[in-house]
C-alpha cells in the first residue's frame, strides 16, 4: 500500500490520465462543433441549395431598400435580404439593432420554416460607415458579380 510507485510508472499513469482527459475533451469538442456550428449562406446559396428547415445558419446580405415592415403585434420585423442575385424573406422578433438600416449589410442567425421563410433569432448589423462584415462582402463576391476586392496585399 504505502510503497511509493516507481517514478517511471507514476509518470506513465499521470501521462495516460492526462492524455485520456485531453482526448475526451477533444472528442466532445469535435462533436459539439459538428452539432452547433452555423454555416453562412447568402440568398443565392439558399436558392441553389436550400438547407433543411430547422437547420440553424447565418443568413447574410443587404437589407433590400423598401422591404422593411412590421407585423401587427408591433414586435416582429419583416424584411428581405438580398445579395443582388436572389432574395430571402425574413422576420425577426425582438428589438432591432441600432445600425439596422435599409441598404445596409446584415447578418441574421436563425432557420428556415417549411415555406422557405427565414426566422431570425439574432441580428447583427453593419458596424460603421467604412466597415462591411467580411462575410457579406464575400457573399456578394461569390455571386459572380464583376466585383473584386481591393487587393492591398497580393491574393
Amino acid at each position: 500500500m504505502a510503497v511509493a510507485r516507481p517514478r517511471k510508472q507514476q509518470r506513465l499513469v499521470l501521462a495516460l490520465v492526462a492524455l485520456a482527459v485531453l482526448a475526451a475533451a477533444g472528442v466532445i469538442a469535435m462533436f459539439a462543433l459538428e452539432d452547433t456550428a452555423a454555416y453562412f449562406r447568402a440568398p443565392a446559396d439558399i436558392e441553389a441549395n436550400p438547407p433543411a428547415p430547422g437547420e440553424t445558419f447565418r443568413l447574410g446580405g443587404l437589407v433590400k431598400p423598401g422591404s422593411v415592415g412590421r407585423s401587427d403585434d408591433g414586435l416582429t420585423l419583416l424584411f428581405t435580404v438580398t445579395d443582388m442575385k436572389a432574395e430571402t424573406s425574413a422576420s425577426y422578433r425582438g428589438l432591432v439593432p441600432d445600425l439596422f438600416r435599409e441598404g445596409q449589410g446584415v447578418i441574421a442567425t436563425g432557420r428556415l420554416d417549411a415555406s422557405g421563410h427565414f426566422e431570425a433569432e439574432q441580428l447583427l448589423a453593419k458596424h460603421d460607415e467604412n466597415y462591411m462584415p467580411p462575410e457579406v462582402a464575400k457573399a456578394l463576391e461569390g455571386t459572380g458579380h464583376p466585383m473584386d476586392k481591393t487587393a492591398a496585399k497580393g491574393g
Binding site: A25, I28, L33, D35, T36, A38, F40, E135
Partner: peptide, 16 residues
C-alpha cells in the same frame, strides 16, 4: 466554407 461557432458550442464544451 464559412461557419460561425457560437455560445451553444462553448457552453456545451466548457461547462462540464
Amino acid at each position: 466554407t464559412q461557419i460561425s461557432v457560437g455560445p451553444p458550442y462553448f457552453n456545451r464544451t466548457t461547462l462540464p
